[in-house]
Simulated scan of single mutants.
Amino acid sequence: MQIDLAGRTAVVTGSSQGIGLAIATGLAHAGARVVLTGRGAGRLQEAQEHLRRAVPSAEVSAVAADLARAEGAEQLCAAVPHADILVNNLGIFGPTPALEIDDALWREYFDVNVLSAVRLIRAYLPGMTRQGWGRIQNIASDSAIVIPAEMIHYGMSKTALLAVSRGFAKEAAGSGVTVNSVIAGPTRTGGVEDFVYSLVDRSLPWEEAQREFMRVHRPQSLLGRLIEPEEIANLVVYLSSPQASATTGAAVRVDGGYVDSIVP
């Protein structure tokens, strides 16, 4: 399948590292002009350099802004008034005992993981519908369906993203714009190797260590290993393409079979 996104502008939030940077790199490989976002200018500069090494022909820029705040969203939209592709990847996570999640933490997770996406959809969707083409994707998680007991505030936020995606897909109905969510499973990102080795024998080579971790601590996975960020990116690039024109309002899984369900 030849995916050609030449001439398209793609905004990827939370893209200075990890899954977001892998998505941005995949979109650049397909020819899109890519806008990286994050709070730290230094990390964004490193991400730009990484992307240009991976895709020497890439047209890439960066906007440093705190997208969890309305002012940050306004700053991004002022710098990039129009996007053909919007990937809302920005998110935070961390374990907290259920009864210790206070009001401030509930609000923080909603602001960062949900409202940041809503604001940008609200900003960019009208331009997409006017031109009759656009792609919006919200990066969710298996935790949206299998709510983690130690992170119910995180699970809540990702479940909300599924509803946001479905609702805005209805708003965009018949316009040529698609809106979907991507349910990502356990993925190898920054810090995950240390986490894995905190639970398995440190003398094991990485491939054995991650499989042991998945076997003992994530037995629901049918993949039997952590997902690579590029594997998430592959699905996102497809959903961003003209070939995915009939997929909208969907929660598409790239979870390694983690969720024990035939449908989301």
Score class of each variant (00 low, 15 high):
9 T>K: 05
13 T>E: 00
13 T>I: 02
14 G>I: 05
16 S>H: 15
16 S>G: 15
18 G>H: 01
19 I>D: 00
20 G>E: 05
20 G>Y: 10
21 L>Y: 11
22 A>H: 04
23 I>N: 02
25 T>H: 07
25 T>Y: 06
26 G>Y: 14
27 L>Q: 01
29 H>P: 14
29 H>L: 15
30 A>R: 02
30 A>W: 01
33 R>C: 04
33 R>H: 11
33 R>F: 10
35 V>G: 05
35 V>L: 11
38 G>A: 10
38 G>D: 12
38 G>T: 05
39 R>P: 13
39 R>Y: 14
40 G>P: 13
40 G>H: 15
41 A>L: 14
41 A>I: 10
44 L>A: 15
44 L>C: 14
44 L>M: 14
46 E>I: 11
47 A>Y: 08
48 Q>H: 14
50 H>T: 15
50 H>G: 12
51 L>W: 12
51 L>E: 11
51 L>I: 04
52 R>Y: 01
52 R>E: 03
52 R>M: 09
53 R>T: 15
54 A>D: 09
54 A>K: 04
55 V>F: 14
55 V>I: 06
56 P>C: 05
57 S>N: 12
58 A>V: 08
60 V>T: 00
60 V>N: 10
65 A>F: 04
65 A>C: 02
66 D>I: 00
66 D>S: 09
66 D>K: 13
67 L>C: 03
69 R>G: 06
69 R>P: 08
69 R>N: 08
69 R>C: 10
70 A>R: 11
71 E>L: 04
72 G>C: 03
73 A>C: 09
73 A>Y: 00
73 A>L: 03
76 L>R: 04
77 C>R: 12
80 V>P: 03
81 P>R: 10
81 P>T: 09
82 H>Q: 14
83 A>N: 06
86 L>I: 08
86 L>S: 10
87 V>E: 14
87 V>G: 04
88 N>I: 01
88 N>H: 00
90 L>S: 06
91 G>T: 04
92 I>G: 02
93 F>P: 08
94 G>M: 00
94 G>F: 07
94 G>D: 02
95 P>T: 00
99 L>K: 15
100 E>A: 13
106 W>I: 09
106 W>R: 14
107 R>D: 15
107 R>T: 14
109 Y>P: 09
110 F>V: 05
110 F>Y: 13
111 D>Q: 07
112 V>Q: 06
112 V>T: 12
112 V>S: 05
